[in-house]
Design a protein around this nucleic acid. Structure first.
Length: 524
RNA sequence: GGCCCCAUCGUCUAGUCAGGUCUAGGACAUCGGAUUUUCAGUCCGAGAACAGGGGUUCGAAUCCCCUUGGGGUCACCA
């Protein structure tokens, strides 16, 4: 039988990076086995603004290139793929259970149930729901029904079953539970809508899912689901509970609720700072609106899908003892569930960045130019990046940047190549320019060696030769002038090689900026 | 608290199922050196781990038990 895996997100308005990893593993297993990957939307709870809430999720899949064989937009034979449109299926399954005595109507009010729970807690004994409604005679049930008395429907756990409820999890191995300790799960609310635990079983059964690959936090839902699969006569799928992704340097599940804490996390901190530096320029808000818990963060800040995919694949899975850099095709070819690690894995921003460095080095110049052009246009630094002169300039800058360009948004750090005014890195300006003797040296170099140069002679080679000749004659380290020149003409301490930078800034503007810097140094 | 899961360098991991070849391998990060009389980068190198205790065995990171620690989950959420 052909493999069928699924990912069933709830439309929350964003795609969680940890959820993305779970989805990736399910997708990978389907692709590795030549099976089907199904996207199913768990929207039993919220029906409003479904498009708005679903958009970012589908976008995340598209950005990473993870296609789905059945689901929203593409349809499929086992649809619909929105739980909100599958009510009849749940109703029918529930009726069947009811008719077979495998489920029952529970007339206890939420308050009563709550009191039971509290009583159990007080007496320090495990809570299992009290089956009062089971004592009702058929006649009493009819009366309650006729009276329109609100009730839920619970699945009747076979607590007296002799053997344990067990699964052979593809990643965790044999796991078993004692059915006698299980509470009867509510499968239908009093308003007639299904609960997740039930809907999932009905969907997985009806869609003939062969491998339920999901995050570890669902492990404790598994026993009742197994029982419900059995009760409904579905063939039990294989389960693979993969570890969840934790926050960097933590053992706790990565959660959007904790973003405020993450801002102080030493490893996460830089990502938030980067967001606050970049997103406002792109009109995307700040780290408040887009943060590293969301997949969109990575897309917008200029990560490569290859890098994110590589990092995600290596989080809880490995090919062997040395392979780190892997294309999606390589991962598909080698992905197996038995090589999924059992313990939870912390998202590592540094490692992701390292993957990014590698994959960015594989991107052709033209592609980099186009993507950087997009960022520049969005930031208002370039009107039309496709216009020949602009394109040429962007190409020159990207070339000069070389492998310094790690994220596409890095292009915004060299905005001084695209606008007139520059922002000084004050600390480094003081250190490299406004210090003993340097302004005088710089002034002399500018007037004696730079100003005489014609625009045609304003080349990296010539500039380097002039600078070397001057510093040799003066008996000073060339590094002194190199730093002073960079700070003066770009305002920054880091950037392309200084001769390239001077060429990019141009003769005219370079001289102007040096003059301005000298004035600034004198006044400080 | 009940139930369940997990435990190798700071981090991600290889090795665990089929004990020896593991004085525990790789990657990221860190530190040091080289290079560019420039930041970055690149190259080379270094430090860095089997949670603890009992067993079984000639031999245990690997098998068994206990302890400790971490985590998940206990809804008319998903």
């Amino acid at each position: 039988m052909s493999t069928r895996t699924r990912f069933a997100p709830s439309p929350t308005g964003y795609m969680h990076i940890g959820g993305m990893r779970t989805a990736l593993f399910a997708w990978l297993w389907a692709r590795h086995t030549g099976g089907a990957f199904i996207l199913r939307i768990d929207d039993t709870d919220r029906q409003r603004n479904i498009d708005e809430a679903l958009g970012p999720i589908l976008n995340a899949f598209r950005w990473l290139g993870l296609n789905w064989d059945e689901g929203p937009e593409v349809g499929g034979a086992d649809g619909p793929y929105f739980q909100s449109q599958r009510s009849d299926l749940y109703r029918a399954a529930c009726d069947r259970l009811l008719a077979e005595g495998k489920a029952y109507r529970d007339f206890d009010s939420p308050e009563v149930v709550q009191a039971d729970r509290q009583a159990a807690e007080k007496e320090k004994r495990p809570y299992i729901n009290v089956r009062r409604s089971l004592d009702l005679t058929p006649q009493q049930v009819e009366e309650h029904l006729a009276a329109g008395r609100p009730h839920v429907i619970r699945f009747l756990v076979p607590r007296d079953r002799s053997e344990k409820v067990a699964i052979d999890d593809a990643v965790r191995g044999h796991v078993e539970w004692d059915a006698a300790l299980l509470s009867d799960p509510v499968i239908m609310r009093s308003d007639g809508s299904p609960l997740y635990n039930f809907a999932t079983v009905v969907d997985d059964g009806q869609m003939r899912i062969t491998h339920v690959i999901r995050a570890e936090e669902h492990l404790s839902n598994t026993p009742v689901q197994v029982l419900m699969h059995e009760a409904l006569g579905y063939e039990l799928p294989a389960f693979a509970h993969i570890p969840f992704v934790t926050a960097p340097g933590s053992t706790k599940k990565l959660s959007k609720r904790d973003v405020d804490k993450y801002k102080n996390n030493p490893q996460f901190k830089r990502m938030f700072e980067r967001a606050d530096a970049v997103f406002p320029q792109l009109g995307l808000g700040t780290s408040e609106t887009l943060n590293p818990v969301m997949v969109e963060y990575y897309e917008r800040i200029g990560y490569l899908p290859q890098a994110v995919l590589n990092a995600l694949a290596r989080l809880g899975w490995s090919l062997d003892d040395k392979t780190e850099i892997m294309s999606l095709d390589t991962v598909i070819e080698n992905f197996t569930l038995d090589r999924v690690v059992k313990n939870c894995a912390g998202l590592d921003p540094d490692k992701l960045f390292a993957f990014q460095s590698h994959w960015m080095s594989e991107v052709p110049l033209d592609e980099k130019v186009v993507r950087c052009g997009d960022h520049l246009r969005t930031a208002g630094l370039v009107h039309d990046p496709l216009e020949p002169a602009a394109r040429e300039r962007i190409t020159a800058v990207v070339t000069a940047l070389g492998d310094r360009l790690k994220l596409y948004s890095d292009i915004l750090d060299v905005d001084y190549f695209f606008k007139d005014e520059i922002v000084y890195d004050e600390k480094n300006f003081a250190k490299r320019v406004a210090k003993d003797g340097t302004p005088e040296l710089l002034a002399e170099f500018a007037s004696s060696h730079l100003e005489p140069l014609s625009t045609a002679d304003w080349t990296a080679e010539r500039l380097e030769a002039e600078l070397n000749a001057f510093s040799e004659a003066k008996g000073v380290s060339s590094g002194l002038l190199i730093h002073a020149l960079r700070l003066s003409t770009t305002g920054q301490a880091v950037g392309p090689g200084v001769y390239d930078a001077l060429v990019l800034v141009g003769r005219e503007k370079s001289l102007e900026r040096i003059t301005a810097a000298l004035m600034k140094a004198r006044n400080s």
